[in-house]
Structures are given as structure tokens and as C-alpha cells.
Amino acid sequence: MFIKTAYSGNTVKDYELLLKQLESLMEDEDNSIAILSNASALLNQFLEEVNWVGFYLWKHNELVLGPFQGLPACVRIPYGKGVCGTAIKERATQLVDDVMLFPGHIACDSASQSEIVVPIIIQDELFGVLDIDSPVKARFNETDQLYLEKFVRILESILNK
């Protein structure tokens, strides 16, 4: 099996444009499903070398599949399990270069090699996570993390209306 191992990433200028597009697209919208659906579509269109982009929502002490772009995915993820559950438990972004080395990784798509998960927290309450997978090892870098966290902060402000 051939595994790609290098990706140069999106530029800061690309990300600045993405953030403006998100704000414009979400202007005057208050339905969380519509917001998250368009946010996942926007990211899927913008990001290269990804195979899954979407959201898991915090419901009844577990993450439940929300709007996404990609192949069918795990429907429920327990607190503290896998990359998504760890992001919720630690309330911190998880940037994973090789998911096979992540303790307790949940393989929803065997093609996924790297992952970034950003928790969504509104008024100090867990809301869910933004989860992005790539078939490329070490696909995500610090620039991706910085701007995907900014992307989530914008979503948090919109969802908090």
C-alpha cells in the first residue's frame, strides 16, 4: 500500500480568505445544523489532501455524529476515547501526525493517516468537535492548527447567538 508522506499545506493568506468566507456565509443564520453543514462543506472545498471533514456534537456524555463531508463515519464516540474523545476530555486541540500511533485511535476510515480535532466550547460548555482526517501522514501543521482554531472560534460566536 502506498502512503503519501509530504504536504506543503495552505498558506496564511488562504486561511485569512477562508475565515472571511465563513463569516460571510454564516451571516444572519442561526440554525446550528445549517451552520455546521455549510462549515464542513466550506472546509472540504478549501482543504487539500483530506478525506473527512465534519463535526461530532456533545450529547448525553458522548460525541454523536453531526454534519460532515466524507465516507460514512462512526456514529458515537465515548468521552476520552480516540482523538475526538481525547480533545473533549482535555478541552484542547489534538494534532496527530500518525493516527496509528495514537493510543486508542478509532479507525472509522482505514485510509486516514493523520488527524486534527478542535474542541468547540460555548460559554464554558462542551458543544462538540471539528474533526478533519487526511490520507497523508503529518498532513496538518501549526498553521493549520492556528487557523482551524480561529475557524472554530468564529463558529462558537455564531452558534452562541
Results as ranks from 00 to 15, higher is better:
residue 15 Y to E: 05
residue 15 Y to C: 08
residue 17 L to H: 14
residue 19 L to C: 04
residue 20 K to W: 10
residue 23 E to Y: 03
residue 24 S to P: 09
residue 25 L to E: 15
residue 26 M to S: 12
residue 27 E to S: 15
residue 27 E to P: 13
residue 30 D to W: 13
residue 30 D to R: 15
residue 32 S to H: 15
residue 34 A to Y: 09
residue 34 A to H: 09
residue 34 A to C: 13
residue 37 S to F: 09
residue 38 N to T: 05
residue 43 L to V: 10
residue 43 L to C: 11
residue 45 Q to W: 14
residue 46 F to H: 12
residue 48 E to L: 14
residue 49 E to N: 06
residue 50 V to F: 09
residue 51 N to Y: 05
residue 51 N to G: 05
residue 52 W to R: 02
residue 53 V to A: 04
residue 55 F to W: 07
residue 55 F to T: 00
residue 56 Y to I: 00
residue 57 L to P: 11
residue 58 W to Q: 07
residue 60 H to V: 12
residue 62 E to W: 12
residue 64 V to T: 04
residue 66 G to I: 08
residue 66 G to N: 07
residue 66 G to Q: 12
residue 68 F to M: 10
residue 68 F to P: 00
residue 69 Q to F: 07
residue 69 Q to L: 13
residue 70 G to D: 11
residue 71 L to C: 13
residue 72 P to T: 03
residue 72 P to M: 07
residue 73 A to I: 02
residue 74 C to M: 14
residue 74 C to R: 15
residue 75 V to W: 12
residue 76 R to F: 14
residue 76 R to W: 09
residue 76 R to A: 06
residue 78 P to W: 07
residue 80 G to C: 03
residue 80 G to K: 00
residue 81 K to G: 07
residue 83 V to R: 00
residue 84 C to L: 01
residue 87 A to D: 05
residue 87 A to C: 08
residue 90 E to M: 10
residue 90 E to H: 06
residue 94 Q to T: 01
residue 99 V to K: 08
residue 99 V to H: 02
residue 102 F to C: 03
residue 103 P to T: 08
residue 104 G to Q: 01
residue 105 H to N: 09
residue 105 H to Q: 02
residue 106 I to M: 06
residue 108 C to L: 00
residue 108 C to D: 12
residue 112 S to N: 00
residue 112 S to L: 12
residue 113 Q to F: 07
residue 115 E to G: 00
residue 116 I to Q: 08
residue 117 V to K: 01
residue 121 I to Q: 05
residue 121 I to L: 10
residue 124 D to F: 11
residue 124 D to I: 05
residue 126 L to H: 09
residue 126 L to E: 09
residue 129 V to L: 00
residue 133 D to R: 00
residue 133 D to C: 04
residue 134 S to M: 03
residue 137 K to Y: 07
residue 138 A to I: 01
residue 139 R to P: 01
residue 140 F to G: 06
residue 144 D to Q: 00
residue 144 D to L: 03
